[in-house]
């Protein structure tokens, strides 16, 4: 059940394709990072892969069965979703938030059991939040809340975890900690990430989205090239490849007085710095 295959996924909004014919396979046990500029369709693609939004064309299969024909509860037992910054107005404790992860395992009449208790304890321990278990949600910091969301997803005991920009609004320590935590669990992970270096550091494979299309898919070293970064992200970069096959991206400052091209669409499509660095546009 940990194999997720998408074929020709398309979803439109306002007469425009937000996601345009994306085919993608999430291999069991891998960490697949989804990167792309703002508005490239990452979140919409993720929602469709999680079964939360329906594609207008194409389909998603979970372990061979069509996701939109699978009961929601079965989907939730297989796939957990962590949103950017899910908030609540309810006065829940940390433990109660994590306990929500047991929802797909509990029927209307089935009582809360030892197994559920154990799953919640284990999840709280995994994110190092046991000592905050009885704290009020609203008394916790952003990083602690996001760790609880991860714990909630762990308590769901899914085969696949889908994360939509899970480290937004966190400081660098918590960003790295959250990703390391997910990576260490050896689950099948699909994560939309903003930071290309995080993608390079944690992902087994990287998928690059640009204007609704999947424009590259492969190992970090293959996908994160200066050319790809220039065409998709419109910035110049240098790639430092490490001996272990990992890579690190150094972004070049834009020349004085120039602005990102997205704010000046009537002029040139790409900043001049790319010309300087690569001798072509």
């Amino acid at each position: 059940m940990s194999r997720l295959v998408a074929k020709g996924l398309t979803r439109r909004a306002g007469g425009r394709a937000i996601v345009d014919g994306v085919s993608l396979e999430l291999v069991e046990g891998e960490f697949l990072a989804l990167v792309g500029p703002n508005g490239s369709g990452k979140s919409t693609l993720i929602s469709m892969l999680a079964g939360l939004k329906r594609p207008h064309a194409g389909d998603v299969r979970l372990g061979g069965a069509r996701l939109d024909k699978t009961p929601r509860r079965d989907v939730a037992r297989a796939i957990a979703v962590v949103e950017q910054q899910a908030e609540t107005g309810e006065r829940l404790t940390a433990r109660e938030v994590v306990a929500l992860g047991r929802t797909p395992h509990l029927g209307a009449l089935s009582p809360w059991g030892e197994e559920d208790e154990a799953a919640v304890e284990a999840a709280l321990a995994a994110v190092d939040m046991l000592r905050f278990a009885d704290r009020d949600w609203h008394s916790l910091s952003g990083g602690e809340r996001q760790r609880l969301h991860i714990a909630r997803a762990l308590a769901q005991e899914p085969g696949i975890v889908i994360l939509d920009e899970p480290t937004n609004h966190l400081d660098i320590e918590h960003q790295l900690a959250i990703l390391a935590l997910v990576k260490a669990r050896r689950m099948t992970v699909l994560a939309a990430l903003h930071d290309l270096n995080h993608a390079a550091l944690f992902a087994d494979r990287i998928a690059v989205m640009d204007q609704g299309r999947l424009v590259a898919l492969g190992r970090p070293g293959e996908v994160l090239t200066p050319e790809r970064i220039a065409t998709t992200f419109k910035v110049a970069a240098m790639i430092e490849t490490a001996a272990d096959g990992g890579c690190h991206i150094r972004f070049m400052p834009l020349p004085h007085g120039s602005q990102p091209p997205s704010r000046l669409p009537e002029r040139h499509d790409k900043p001049r710095v790319i010309n300087l660095l690569h001798g072509r546009v």
Partner: peptide
Amino acid sequence: FAFGTHAAAALGIA
């Protein structure tokens, strides 16, 4: 529903 309809759906709620 504590974290909204999206989160509820992701927890297996119809």
